[in-house]
């Protein structure tokens, strides 16, 4: 299959290793990966913070960049949720029937990375090896909007050498919430403190997930506290080899 990668702006800039891992896993599974070069941002930050007019121009941009794609894979639950939940609303707002039609046509082709593996390809074992103690953080968008269920955990369980431990209060938000962590830093920090306690209680070496924004948030506190626990995107674990 020819997979178009939508890396998303923050993974592109801050977490290139995640993108490399996605490429590695997909190629290992026999797929080819292309990268539409004009891509930038899905619009989530602006849309969710209330700058909806500013987010609108990013929609036709996305449609143009990915118009020839067979499938579109993105290693970010919140960005994919943004697209699935809000692109139809944005299209409606733009009052352009062509955009509405294009959104309707393209959205079924958009997959979050883990979801692409488990639901589109029907895979659990992707041939990975990762000899570490790992706990999985379920991002809210993955859990509630994307309904990923235990898909990511099934992928992780199939990894050779892994010691997967479940975190307490799996369904509890880490407190990131995009600009929430800035605007309501104290409340966000209190939520984060609980999540970090949960991570530490698992005695895992690595906390993983399908969204680097939550991992950056949790990882930021893990680093500040010098815990030695590392945040690693799911793709990077699945890319692991012996």
């Amino acid at each position: 299959m020819r997979v178009s990668l939508f890396i998303t702006c923050y993974n592109d800039t801050l977490f290139p290793e995640t993108g490399k891992a996605v490429v590695k896993v997909l190629e290992r599974l026999g797929h080819t990966v292309d990268f539409p070069a004009g891509q930038t941002c899905c619009g989530q930050m602006h849309w969710n913070t209330g700058y909806q007019e500013e987010a609108l121009p990013l929609l036709p941009r996305f449609l143009k960049q990915f118009k020839d794609s067979e499938v579109i894979v993105s290693p970010s639950t919140s960005c994919v949720a943004m697209m699935k939940d809000h692109y139809p609303i944005m299209a409606e707002r733009m009052k352009d029937p062509k955009i509405t039609a294009e959104v309707a046509a393209i959205l079924p082709k958009v997959w979050e990375f883990s979801q692409f593996l488990t639901q589109k390809l029907g895979l659990e074992d992707v041939g990975a090896y990762y000899p570490h103690r790992v706990t999985y953080h379920a991002s809210c968008h993955g859990l509630r909007s994307m309904k990923l269920g235990d898909g990511p955990q099934r992928l992780l369980r199939a990894v050779r050498g892994i010691d997967l431990v479940e975190i307490e209060n799996l369904e509890q938000c880490c407190g990131f919430g995009g600009t929430f962590a800035i605007k309501n830093a104290e409340v966000s920090s209190a939520m984060l403190a609980e999540k970090v306690r949960g991570v530490l209680n698992t005695r895992a070496e690595v906390v993983t997930g399908c969204d680097n924004s939550c991992l950056m948030h949790i990882g930021g506190a893990l680093h500040r506290q010098r815990t030695g626990v590392r945040p690693v995107h799911l793709a990077e674990i699945l890319a692991g080899e012996e």
């Binding site: 290139p16 995640t18 500040r224």
Partner: peptide
């Protein structure tokens, strides 16, 4: 400034030298 709340309890890793798109290209 307004980003100060973040760094009260969290560190932030600096941007890697190479972006993903540079690597891919």
């Amino acid at each position: 400034g307004m980003l100060g709340g973040w760094s009260q309890v969290r560190d932030l890793r600096v941007m890697p030298k190479q972006t993903f798109r540079q690597w891919f290209e």
